[in-house]
Design a protein around this nucleic acid. Structure first.
Length: 491
RNA sequence: CGGGGUGUAGCGCAGCCUGGUAGCGCACUUGACUGGGGGUCAAGUGGUCGUGAGUUCAAAUCUCGCCACCCCGACCA
């Protein structure tokens, strides 16, 4: 662990966000014990604390999938190379980043196997076998697993060679139903990000150039990181009949006619952990949203040698009472560290609340409560503190969301002229602007400003999605989409 | 692949110019003292100096090749 003597590090041993946001991010991930580098470039090791966070994310999302009648299953990680080639856009999109197995069992394989970059193709293949009648539909499937994309510039959590996710795949008899499904998942993602990760996101449809390889429409939730850059935190795709036609996913409909299924796919990956870090983290380290935090409250017993056993025991009893209320508690029983070192240790790891329990408190029947969001430490009567903690955790959750929302709202601006647009992007804002919808123009904008279209906000996004007419901020042509869209530099 | 940079203990670095057989801080181990915001003292563990070759009595240090990693750009959940 680096010390305050490090060149760029602050008193907490971390490069401040304002000095270098990227360095800050990398250091936090490593020092907070979320992940580590592996011997393979770009492939990360997720450490227990990071995985515990991911497990909490999985639990919530998995519950929501099941509540909407989806079924979990598992497809293999190896896909015949020829499958990828069946959907033209798809192979074009993924070819550069495929990892391919050419040898197995000591022999050259007749057909190379792709390590799945995503599973639309192999699932399409299987569905074709399973689907006979409209009565079989819909297929509402999803799987938890990992996929491999040979990225050129990996970053812990944000862009790793192998990453963990769930991928949902559904097949429907009608266009309408498939589109409903696509939007249903977008809403599940939006509310998950907001209500659990405390990340305010903009739900919207992607423009042509940002669409998933092989999709008819791609929807995303876009979050704003602490440096103003955008992070695509989840996607939901309406695939139309593209994959159904490539894999002959067809059935006999009510009118005894042969029809192709309409399919969707959707995903949230471990990337969202990077999003949580960069949305809430500060110069002391992580700040975990309580609803996802592996540890919600840490108890630091304060003692001297002569009362060590007594204080540890008191801490354990307190911990047990909190656990009984459903609070995720950790007791820091490590000896030989000063209290200050422990405080910093848990603050770096973003634990929302810390209870200090010392001899004076024990005698007076009090505890000291400190919030990761700062402010004065509170001295509370023991019983009151215990009973009040679940409520405080909720309040903490809300405060985090509010903080993130205030920050985000202050960094979304509207531009009507090109000069304005460039200036705002340069300053790191999300920019609402009209666009003509031409892919060439999007490319040019990216070249000139490094900004891309994030999405076309849904009508439900309030002012951000309000209907409005205007002319393209880049070409001056009439605007497409009937509203302003979001531009930003992105991860 | 293009541009830049770095490889010396787990991490961060010094030593290299001017060759003489490796050092500092943190971490780690042991003990004592300490203990309400990153403690003190003492004693320790840990390195074929990225790799191969060359020059030399002698190479972390000089020469040449190779490799790896990091940062910036194109790609992306």
């Amino acid at each position: 662990m680096s010390q305050p003597s490090d060149k760029k590090a602050n008193q907490y041993g971390v490069t401040p966000q304002s000095t270098d946001f990227n360095d800050w991010y990398n250091e936090i991930v490593l020092k907070a014990d979320l992940a580590d580098y592996s011997p393979v470039r770009g492939a990360m090791v997720v450490k227990p604390y990071g995985w515990a966070l991911w497990e909490n994310i999985q639990k919530i999302l998995d519950g929501q999938f099941k509540a909407t009648n989806h079924e979990a299953l598992a497809f293999p990680m190896f896909i015949p190379m020829s499958f990828l080639q069946k959907e033209a856009q798809h192979v074009e999109g993924f070819a550069p980043e495929l990892a391919v197995v050419t040898h197995a069992g000591g022999e050259l394989l007749e057909e190379p196997l792709v390590v799945r970059p995503t599973s639309e193709t192999i699932i399409g293949h299987c569905w074709a076998k399973w689907l006979k009648s409209y009565r079989d539909l819909p297929f509402l499937h999803y799987q938890w697993g990992s996929v491999v994309r040979w990225e050129l510039r990996p970053r812990l959590f944000l862009r790793t060679t192998e990453f963990y996710w769930h991928e949902g795949h559904t097949a429907h008899s009608s266009h309408t139903e498939a589109v409903e499904e696509t939007l249903r998942l977008l809403e599940i993602y939006r509310s998950f990000a907001r209500d659990y990760a405390a990340m305010p996101v903009i739900a919207g449809r992607k423009t042509d150039s940002e669409r998933f390889a092989g999709a008819v429409d791609t929807y995303s939730i876009e979050a704003m990181m602490g440096d103003g850059k955008a992070l695509q935190a989840g996607t939901s795709h309406y695939l139309g009949q593209n994959f159904a036609k490539a894999f002959e996913v067809k059935f006999q409909d009510e009118n005894q006619k042969e029809a192709f299924a309409h399919t969707t796919s959707w995903a949230i990956s471990t990337r969202i952990i990077g999003g949580i870090i960069m949305t809430h983290g500060d110069d002391k380290g992580l700040v975990m949203p309580p609803r996802l935090a592996p540890i919600q409250v840490v108890i630091v017993p304060i003692y001297r040698k002569e009362n060590q056993d007594q204080m540890l025991e008191a801490a354990r009893v307190l911990g047990t009472e909190l656990k009984a209320l459903g609070v995720r508690v950790k007791i820091d029983e490590r000896d030989g560290l000063t209290n200050g070192a422990k405080y910093n240790y848990w603050e770096l790891r973003g634990v929302p609340y810390r209870i200090e329990l010392g001899p004076r408190d024990l005698e007076a029947g009090n505890v000291v409560l400190a919030s990761r969001l700062g402010g004065e430490k509170e001295i509370l009567a023991r019983g009151e503190a215990i009973a009040g903690l679940p409520g405080k955790l909720e309040a903490f959750q809300n405060a985090l969301l509010e903080k993130a929302e205030t920050f985000r709202n202050s960094r979304i601006k509207t531009a009507d002229t090109w000069d304005e647009f460039v200036d705002l992007i340069e300053q790191g804002f999300f920019v609402r602007a009209f666009h003509c919808g031409e892919v060439e123009s999007e490319k040019k904008i990216k070249e000139l400003t490094k900004a891309t279209t994030r999405n076309i906000p849904m009508d439900s996004e309030g002012d951000l999605g309000a209907a409005e007419e205007g002319v393209c901020v880049h070409t001056g042509k009439p605007a497409a989409y009937g509203k302003r869209i979001i531009f930003a530099r992105a991860y």
